[in-house]
Write a protein that binds this DNA or RNA. Sequence first.
DNA 1: ATGCCTCAGCTCCTGAGA
Length: 263
Amino acid sequence: MIKFATWNVNSLTVRLPQVLEWLSKDPIEPTSSGVDLLAIQETKTTDDKFPLKDFENANFHVAFHGQKTYNGVALVSKYPLENIVKNIPGFDDDMARVISATVNGIRVVGAYFPNGQDPESDKFEYKMRWLTALHDWLKSELTQYPKMILMGDFNITFDARDVWDPVKLEGTIHCTLQERAHLTSLIELGFTDSFRVFDEEEKKYSWWDYREFAFKRNRGLRIDHILVSKALETQLTNCVIDKAPRKNERPSDHAPVVAYFKA
DNA sequence: ATGCCTCAGCTCCTGAGA
């Protein structure tokens, strides 16, 4: 059994105790061991301030790529991380959004997709360019690494099932046709949305606004995803969103997503 | 309501998140 997870922690400095606690046991079976690899987004810390020792003391290998105030990604793994690559090679970007490594023969790409803010904004235009660059890069990466997992905070919903009020939010950020077309392009490279292999229910989300008691009212979006390549999908046995950490006293606005694989 | 909550930082307000 191999367990891979993704979690936008909204500041690793604030969430470190929760992350270490969450890593200590399985999200479904508390008596079972914790995940083997966690992709973290929004560490919001520079590399010199990354809590390396805290993870090493807990026997984890880590790879991180951060910056001041915003963004920042990391991989936390029980197994050594090989061939670490930061960001999208060839794409000029001053934001720390992607980190990749190979673990047990599986290529792992952890990504914090741009938010986009508003479909009319410059940030949305950047999001579109970033998505094109990611697609083109992964197309060639897949030929080199048939077993690949692309996971993180995508900041895109697949369809109405991923949106608490699809009518009200139609065409707004995370729900536009342009964003979803890019997501479809990624899928067409040969990826599968792990969550929908097992869960076809509506109203299952990975993010809830801090305001208006959105979590309590389950007004959320499913924007955190684990995509697996065809060669890896044969090993996929389950995928769940763990809402438990969202109930913590000082939670991230995102919940972690976990995918399970047979060896 | 261009808000509501949370986080970081050139910190007592602002930008960004989603």
